[in-house]
């Protein structure tokens, strides 16, 4: 479903070149749930940015659902991202002036999904927030915001979810509830999930754990 072939990315700081990814290879199957762990600043966000199509690699290729990123323009990459990838962020990143329903509807509207409102309400019900549909993000708790974010990430049936420390801003209990919900929905929809986390207990819920070290992903079987 997702292939990263000999991916390299280097940042330049003044006269110094800092290699972040060095000839990285990675493969993700459909419906597979993996976690990526690593030290802060190791390059995890760069990896996610490359997979999202936001940044372009210096070398190598990314293939998502048989489509290569090489040769795609920024607009085409954005379209690919919009249709194939969903995001769940540590800081939720809901659009502040849209209520829960509208935030969930957004990707559906972007992708031209039919009956976006009904689908959004359905998802909100699944995440237990049907009665909070008309509330703005400022009126929701952390856990509620993350559940809205999960619903938003899934509404357009993406092939892949990128989750960046989804429970990082939540307390333990809420974090667990949110993770339960995320795993449940992802598994139900057979959506692949790449979960970046510092929490081993969360990582251990995934099928595979990868360590990001020296620009490489090293797998650990669970």
């Amino acid at each position: 479903m997702l292939k990263l072939n000999n991916l390299s990315k280097t940042y330049t700081q003044g006269e110094k070149s800092v290699p972040v990814l060095s000839d990285l290879n990675f493969h993700l199957n459909k419906g597979e749930i993996v976690s990526i762990m690593g030290k802060s600043g190791s390059g995890k966000s760069t990896l996610l940015s490359l997979i999202s199509g936001i940044l372009k690699s210096d070398d190598g290729d990314i293939i998502l659902n048989s489509k290569s990123y090489n040769g795609l323009s920024e607009v085409e990459l954005a379209d690919l991202r919009a249709s194939h990838i969903g995001f769940v962020f540590q800081n939720f990143h809901l659009v502040s002036y849209l209520n829960a329903l509208e935030n969930v509807m957004l990707p559906a509207k972007v992708n031209g999904v039919t009956n976006p409102k009904e689908r959004a309400m359905d998802l909100l019900e699944k995440v237990g927030l049907k009665d909070r549909a008309n509330h703005l993000p400022s009126e929701l708790s952390g856990g509620e915001k993350q559940r809205v974010a999960i619903a938003r990430a899934l509404i357009h049936d993406p092939k892949l979810i990128l989750a960046d420390e989804p429970s990082g801003s939540l307390d333990e209990q809420t974090g667990e509830e949110v993770m339960d919900m995320l795993f449940e929905l992802v598994q139900k929809n057979e959506t692949s999930l790449i979960l970046v986390t510092h929490a081993l207990n969360v990582a251990q819920r995934c099928q595979k754990i990868y360590n990001f070290t020296d620009g490489q992903l090293v797998a650990h079987e669970i």
Binding site: S45, S49, S52
Partner: peptide
């Protein structure tokens, strides 16, 4: 501006 700012420090 690039959206990768949203990923934050991970």
């Amino acid at each position: 501006e690039k959206e990768n700012d949203l990923f934050g420090e991970i």
